[in-house]
């Protein structure tokens, strides 16, 4: 499924300063039963957002109306655990186009890039600065510029650059995905496959 192009995102951000947020928290397994990709945003962080009787847990950040925006700022080792792409879908479907953290789990990072969510890895210091700035003023904005590979805290103009490989960057800038690329390689793949021993 192709996604919208990602160029520059200027937005307020939602802080989630917890480490090792695993994919079972992002979307619990019992919500993986769909056969279509829709509605996952409703269950993003389900058990942190809702009580067992489906009432809101007021204290959870997504239930606090002063925090909003298209950027989620998570703690170190964000997205550990299962390979479920549903976690990235839930993030996207809820309305986040970018997750910022000081460290990402591998598969989650890959899944995000495959579906159009930009994972931005910053230093631990910069992450702290972001949290402080949001704490001081929840309307503070971040600007993510994919072309320049920078993230800027607009209130102070502090900036950090982030890594992304050229191939994935091109994809995100143009809204392409890997399947588009592989489809053009069919003949080369068939030739390779014919030589495999098993």
């Amino acid at each position: 499924m192709a996604y919208d192009k990602f160029e520059i995102l200027k937005s307020t951000a939602v802080p989630l300063p917890i480490e090792n947020v695993d994919t079972d928290q992002i979307i619990p397994a019992r919500f993986l039963k769909a056969t279509e990709r829709k509605g996952f945003g409703d269950n993003l962080f389900r058990d942190w957002r809702y009580n067992p009787d489906n009432t809101l847990k007021e204290e959870f950040v997504l239930n606090n109306p002063i925090y909003k925006g298209g950027i989620l700022v998570g703690g170190k080792n964000f997205g550990s655990g299962s390979s479920r792409e549903h976690a990235a879908w839930a993030v996207y479907d809820y309305g986040f186009r970018c997750v910022v953290s000081s460290f990402f789990a591998d598969i989650f990072r890959g899944n995000c890039l495959n579906i159009g969510v930009l994972p931005v890895q910053v230093s631990a210091e910069f992450l702290e600065k972001i949290y402080k700035a949001i704490e001081a003023d929840p309307t503070t904005e971040l600007e993510i510029n994919l072309q320049n590979q920078t993230i800027t805290l607009l209130v102070s103009d502090e900036k950090e650059s982030f890594d992304i490989n050229d191939y994935k960057k091109e994809n995100m800038l143009n809204g392409y995905d890997d399947i588009d690329y592989l489809t053009k390689m069919k003949e080369e793949i068939k030739d390779f496959a014919s030589k495999r021993p098993f």
Binding site: S83, R84, A88, I107, N114, I115, I179, Y181, L182
Partner: peptide
């Protein structure tokens, strides 16, 4: 190794995925 659903689709359609070498 484990893959996401987009990659499941890649393997179904092309028997390949796109991976940086760990």
């Amino acid at each position: 190794f484990g893959i996401g659903t987009s990659e499941v689709e890649m393997v179904l359609s092309s028997q390949c995925i796109m991976q940086p070498k760990p």
